[in-house]
Amino acid sequence: MAQDHSHPHPHQPDLEETPLTHYQAMTEAVGQLLIEKGVISGEELRAVLEQIDSKSPAAGARMVARAWMDDDFKARMLADVNKAAEEMGIDAGTIPIRAVENTEAVHNVIVCTLCSCYPRNLIGLPPDWYKARSYRSRTVREPRVVLTEFGTTIPDAVEVRVHDSTADLRYMVLPARPAGSEGLDEAALADLVTRDCMIGVTLPKTPDL
């Protein structure tokens, strides 16, 4: 599976050792009351939680790799990500997802300045930095500076196109296939595709030659 960060996540202590916060208690209480009132069932809640856990950048990476291999698939993916996902047995949910393609002339970056809209039904929940004030504020105003903070430099001749996804669609980047990946099969190509390159803040990994 494509993983694009190697730093450790903060340690989470065993749940029972930590005092419950006000909002944790609220979440538990609301869940219990909704079940008791028959608004939702425990089974439905469990099923949705499992669905949330089943989403990961790997699904998006598989689609990108397929698009790199197959121009017809790429055209269908650019037209309708949800439908193209279905072809591959991937459930991308009902909120329309659009892919924007990086080319030699254009580099795309996704942000949501009003909240934190993200194609979560395809690639899972967003990283915290995506929801942070610094990313949401600055990406529209100085995208190239923000990109350098991710270690990404885009040549001046290439247009940086920022997509503020604040309405009814969700956006992902279809990155350009990296040089040197010619001989690779679909699975090996998918390994080059990271979550961050589908947000547009980095480029895909380069193959080990």
């Binding site: 960060h5 730093h7 996540h9 903060p10 942000v111 300045t113 009003l114 990283p127 915290d128 930095w129 942070a132 004030r133 610094s134 990313y135 949401r136 504020s137 600055r138 529209v140 105003r141 923000v146 903070e149 991710f150 503020d164 961050d196 803040v201």
Partner: peptide, 16 residues
């Protein structure tokens, strides 16, 4: 969108 803010720090302790 467009307001001043600090660096993103995608590799810092609060990034994920």
């Amino acid at each position: 969108g467009g307001l001043d803010a600090g660096p993103v720090d995608p590799f810092g302790p609060g990034a994920e």
